[in-house]
Amino acid sequence: MESAFERHCLELVASERSGHTAVVQENLLYVWGGYMSIADDEVFLPSDEIWVYDLEGGIWKVFHMTGEVPPSMSGTCGCSLNGHMYIFGGCDDNGQTNQLYGVDLTDGKYAWRKIIHRYGSAPSPRDKLSCWVYSGRIIYFGGYGHKLLTDIDSRNRSFIVDETSWVEDVFWGWNNEVHAFDPMQTSWSEPQTQGRAPAPRAAHASATLGSRGYICGGRVMETRTSDIHCLDLETWTWSEILPCSTSPVGRSWHTLTAVSDNSLFLFGGLSVDCKPMSDGWLLDVDTKKWRELEHPYKNKPRLWHTACPGKDSDVIVFGGSCDYILLVDTGHCNDALVFQIQPYPLFRICEDYIAKNVRTSEMLRDQLPLLPPKLLETVQRRISFYRPSKKQTKTQ
């Protein structure tokens, strides 16, 4: 029988948002930050709360966060490493930042810690950047931010000035810098890369496959691209992948997710002509071929959303905008879209079949109590996921 607490949880749904951070840890989706539109205003979401979505049970919970709470922001770069979520950069009420924060997701306390590095120099303030996690380090790439005129080397094309944005000796622009942070040593470093680096950009997408970091598209000055570049995280050598088949159109504010040892999944974004997109593509990095993926969310365009890898090669897309986000009162979203990339194992097929049909099948209901306790608990969580609920249906 369903408890009052469980019924309350079923009514909870994370707020609509774009430009947020999301990570998956042990079948739980953690969502933090971002912003939403209220009337004519863009409002940052509270920074002292974290929303947690049970990917097996379909239930949202919200937790209060303590400690050195960061300011409310959008456009931060978030990732998970060794059970911790890290956020770097982003844009708050005072503009772009270069602060780094971490929170332990495993102890249930959700206490923020502002990380002060002991060695090296932090990157300049920026947002809309991306990162790779490899060999215990977080490696950041690109973004849009500001630098002092004295810090801009005109001979080095790693920072392109935005001619429309400058104040006295402070200039905004795009960069293609690579910075690495080691949480164990609390140190920053700037690896010297080889090969031809991608053009400076922001609002691009990235993913890690083995010892390689990939980036795709993004905004390069006034254009949106679809190019793909790879950085070998052992040798720090750049290379460009030139697709040998039909490829996605240029875009920004999209996502790229590793779904196997050799394939990446691209979803959504904002096109060159400023149209929100809902197309999904798979790239085989070995054959360099793109294949458009059929999926049930063609009517749900998304940009500035998040995409996280789940179990059985699922990709969980949360939030984002279904409209051009530079418009006032844009359509932010709060649904979790689960993309099935690979065929499911037989156990999951059976589990989902029972969960979907137990209410209409007397035989399944009679057999359910005969399952071993652990299996019964798992199946009951899936039944909860598929339980009809006015608010819960919006998150499926």
Rank of each mutant, 00 (worst) to 15 (best):
255 T>R: 10
47 S>T: 07
274 C>Q: 08
281 W>D: 03
294 E>G: 03
77 C>D: 13
280 G>H: 11
360 T>M: 13
359 R>K: 15
343 P>Q: 09
97 T>Y: 13
187 S>L: 09
278 S>L: 12
81 L>W: 00
271 S>Y: 12
125 P>I: 09
295 H>R: 06
20 H>N: 07
53 Y>M: 03
126 R>W: 12
9 C>H: 10
270 L>P: 04
311 K>P: 08
41 D>Q: 11
341 I>K: 13
159 F>S: 04
187 S>C: 05
386 Y>K: 13
159 F>P: 01
288 K>N: 08
261 D>T: 12
349 I>P: 05
175 N>S: 08
294 E>F: 02
93 D>W: 03
161 V>G: 10
392 Q>N: 05
119 Y>L: 07
276 P>E: 04
205 A>W: 14
352 D>R: 10
18 S>F: 15
190 E>Y: 01
139 I>K: 03
53 Y>K: 07
209 L>I: 12
169 D>K: 01
121 S>K: 02
56 E>G: 04
382 R>V: 10
40 D>M: 14
305 H>A: 01
49 E>G: 10
37 S>G: 08
293 L>Q: 02
162 D>F: 15
216 C>E: 09
287 T>I: 05
44 F>Y: 10
191 P>S: 15
125 P>L: 12
202 A>N: 05
197 A>M: 06
102 G>A: 10
134 Y>I: 01
112 W>Q: 00
148 L>V: 06
277 M>L: 12
56 E>W: 14
312 D>W: 15
59 I>C: 10
32 W>H: 03
65 M>E: 05
107 D>W: 00
244 C>R: 03
333 C>Q: 14
283 L>Y: 08
355 A>T: 02
142 G>L: 04
339 F>P: 00
212 R>P: 00
138 I>Q: 05
377 E>V: 15
395 T>Q: 14
348 R>C: 14
293 L>N: 01
120 G>I: 06
174 W>S: 01
255 T>E: 10
105 L>M: 02
396 Q>C: 02
91 C>N: 11
